[in-house]
Structure formats: C-alpha cells, structure tokens
Design a protein around this nucleic acid. Structure first.
Lengths: 178, 178
DNA sequence: ACGAAGTCTTGTCAGTGACAAGATAGCTCG
DNA sequence: CGAGCTATCTTGTCACTGACAAGACTTCGT
C-alpha cells in the first residue's frame, strides 16, 4: 500500500466504487468526475488519466458488469438463469444501469465488445437447443421484468410480493420448446 | 401567429421537438437547454420559464410519451398490443427513452403519475381476465424486447429479420391463459 | 386605458469535462 | 547504482452548462 499522495495505487478501483455508489443513489446523470476525484482525495484531473474521459468510466463499469453477469448466469437451467438475471439487476443496479446505456459509454470499445460476446454465449448456453427465438423470448422477459421493476413500474403490480418469486412463476408461462 | 421576438407563442412545442431530435440522435445526456434555446432562436434562459428546470423538460416529454403510448395501444388483443408496444419504441425512441429514465424527470409530478396510470389501464384492458401475472409477463416481454433492441443487443440475433415479425412469433411462446 | 400576469432577455455564478504542461514516483537496464 | 523512461498525479485554464435574479416587453381582462 503506497502511502504517498502520488501513485495512489488503487485509484481506478476506488473511483469505480465511488461511481457505483453515486449511480445507485442518484443515477448516472448525477455522476461527475470531479466528485469522484474528491471522494478519492485526488486532484480533479486524476480520473481522466485512468479512463480517458467520462464515457471511459462508464465503459469500464459496463465491462465489469458484463463480466459479473456472465459469471452469475453460468450454469443451471433456463428459468433459474432468468431468476439470477433479475437478481443481478437488483444487486448490481449501477452495473446493470451502465450496461444498457449506449449513449454513456464507448460503443466500439474492444474490451466491452468481448465482454458482451461472452455474456451472450453464457445466455445462449442456457437455452435448450440454442434456438434463437427462445433466447430472444427468455432474454426479453427477464430483461423487461428487471428493467420495469427498476424503473418503478411494478410497485403496484407486485404489491409486497418477492420479485424473484413472482418472476419464477411468471417465467413458467413461457413455452421453451416450440 | 405572433411575429415579434417576444411571445414566440409556440416555444414549448418547438423546444420539445428539438429535444426529441437531439435525444434520438445523441441520447438524453447530450441535450442541453441552451442548445434547445439556440435551435429555437430564443435566449438561453427562455426554456427554464416553460419547464422550470431540465428535469421539467424530460417530465413533459415523459408525459407526452405516456399519452401517445396509451393512444397507440388502446384496443385489440394482447399479442397485437405487444407488437404496437415494440413499434412505439421504434417510432418514438426519444419519448420511450425519457419515459423509462426516472433519474431524468420529476418522479412525483402529478401530470406524469396520471398519464402513467392511464397507460397502465390501457395495458390491463388488453389482458384476458386482467390477471396480474399475465400482465406482468406480457409487459415484461414487450418491454424487454423493445429495450434490448434499442440498446443494440439484438443486431446479431435478429439478423436482417423484421423486428415486429420476430416479436409476433416470439410472443406466441407466451401462455396467456394459465 | 391601465394594471396584472405571462413571456422572454440580460447578466451572473458555481460547477463541469476536457485539455495542456509540469511535477513526482517507481521501474528498467546500463 | 544511477540515469533515463514511463506511469501516475497535479495545477492551471477554457468553453460550456444549469440555475437564478432582475428587468423588459407583450398580451389580455376589465
């Protein structure tokens, strides 16, 4: 652990964690590089060195999110994967948010494309027969549920019910073998 | 039609339209009130008068979006409603975007809550028996499909296929009567 | 015709992202 | 060991932004 002001050593990680907190609290629009710098106790220009620009920060978060998601989804059968998708969105709201905001990150970043491809593979591996149509349907269902829930559209519909239970039931409505 | 610089007469509408274009082109993050003012040929502080603040602009767009969506969805049977939901997201990308970004608008705006409630009613009216579970599933499926498509996650999966056709087929996988 | 309310302007402020130039620290390789 | 090299961080600056305050103009009701 370096002690000097220079060469913080862990800056990138600290900045990302501060960003994740801010996104979860107030949304991505409220994140400022200068706030992050202050939170980490470094100068206002330090973040730029690690991420290039603001979009670079979100790119890094989106990559990390895809990796975490791929890890969380790997293995098991389709309906369970759906539940874990919904859980991921709830437990990693900032990652989830960043991953699906193309206007915030660098769309063509090679690292991001690779991470996305890997997540896609894991998703496909969970689909019986690997049918495109079933994959589209299952992904849409889980993603729509997670997103609508996150944006506060299910409060009345779910009442006090546990969201994961509700999703598990509702996922049973999907015919997986056409 | 007033000619004077003062009392533009149509400012609010013009500002919203300019915003819709900008959102569609570069995403909501790229919208600045000052850009809109320039586009409308008014002073930099004019937009604030109509919307209060930036969030007010997005609130107005979200309200309009809900009204348009309710109108577009009304009537017909469930699967068709889903197709129209997907179509709406494609034809009114900026409205759709704003509607599901709680961090950008005023969450508790009465007009917005009313518009959302109305959209919800129309959705429910399309669900046979009005079952909560079917509504959750159908809405999730359509919303997830529309969102994933908008965020560029279906490019490879869809290939050149027409998205609405693809959704119509995939919606057939959903059991509507449990 | 007159005053109130609505609409737009001018002026200003702190905060922001980006960039440039410089200082510091750790590393490599002679 | 020490001289350069590179990565990391700082300081300084610029144009731009959202918000606010105060004022100017216009329209409308009465």
């Amino acid at each position: 652990m370096p002690k000097s002001a220079y060469h913080h050593g862990d800056l990138q990680r600290v900045l990302i964690e501060a960003a994740l907190e801010l996104i979860a609290e107030r949304g991505p629009a409220a994140v400022s590089l200068r706030d992050l710098a202050r939170a980490a106790g470094v100068s206002h220009a330090a973040p730029a060195h690690h991420f290039g620009d603001k979009a670079g920060l979100f790119t890094a978060i989106a990559i990390q999110g895809n990796e975490l998601l791929a890890e969380a989804l790997a293995g098991g059968e389709l309906r369970d994967m759906g539940v874990r998708y919904v859980r991921f969105a709830a437990e990693h709201p900032s990652h989830f948010e960043a991953m699906f905001r193309p206007d915030l990150y660098h769309r063509d970043d090679p690292g991001l494309l690779a991470a996305r491809a890997r997540t896609s593979e894991v998703l496909r591996a969970g689909v019986p027969g690997g049918h495109d149509q079933v994959m589209l349907a299952a992904w849409s269902l889980a993603h729509g549920f997670a997103t609508l829930r996150r944006t506060g559209n299910f409060e009345r519909l779910l009442g006090g019910r546990d969201a994961e239970d509700a999703f598990r039931e509702l996922a049973g409505l999907l015919r997986v073998r056409p």
